Amino acid sequence: MLKRLSESELDVMLVVWRAQEALDTGEVARRLQKGWKIQAVQVVLGRLVKKGYLSCEKIGRLNYYTPLVAEADYRAAETETFVEKLYRNSPKSLIAALVQSQPLSKEDFEEIRALLDRGEES
């Protein structure tokens, strides 16, 4: 089971996931575009290594980080937890809440229908 990420940890992971290459601490800080001090970025990266989300390889004087957990795997785990906790494990209730909370365009409805139809086929 994956450990939940804090908002700051998720911000950093999104940068690393989208990079598709190992990043050093300074590059993570630049790509975050949040104005964080380098020390704050180092702390978050260290927490992510301890949680098992990132690997760290020291090359020269720099630490390079690569993901150990895929973004899709994290999203799937978070979605499952969300549906379990808030909708008592009922995807139907989640979809009903989404539809009731905001109107869907015809295109949105057609895309959702296509997804549901593919799910029935599996």
Rank of each mutant, 00 (worst) to 15 (best):
A70V: 05
K50C: 06
E27I: 03
A77L: 13
V49Y: 13
A77T: 13
M13W: 05
Y74S: 02
D73M: 11
V28L: 06
T25A: 10
A29T: 12
E21R: 15
E21H: 15
G52N: 07
E27Q: 13
E21L: 15
E21K: 15
G35D: 11
L45H: 01
K50T: 03
K3P: 08
A77C: 07
K50E: 14
Y74T: 00
E78C: 04
N63P: 05
C56A: 14
Y53R: 00
R75Q: 11
Q33M: 09
L2V: 09
E9Q: 09
Y74E: 01
A29V: 08
G46M: 04
L54F: 06
K51R: 10
V44R: 12
G35Y: 13
Y74V: 00
R4V: 01
R75G: 12
R30G: 04
L62E: 12
G46I: 08
V15W: 08
L14E: 15
V41D: 06
V15G: 12
L32K: 14
N63M: 11
G35W: 10
N63C: 07
V69Y: 00
R18T: 14
L23A: 05
S8H: 10
S6Q: 14
R61N: 14
A76N: 04
R31S: 02
V43M: 03
Q33G: 08
L10T: 00
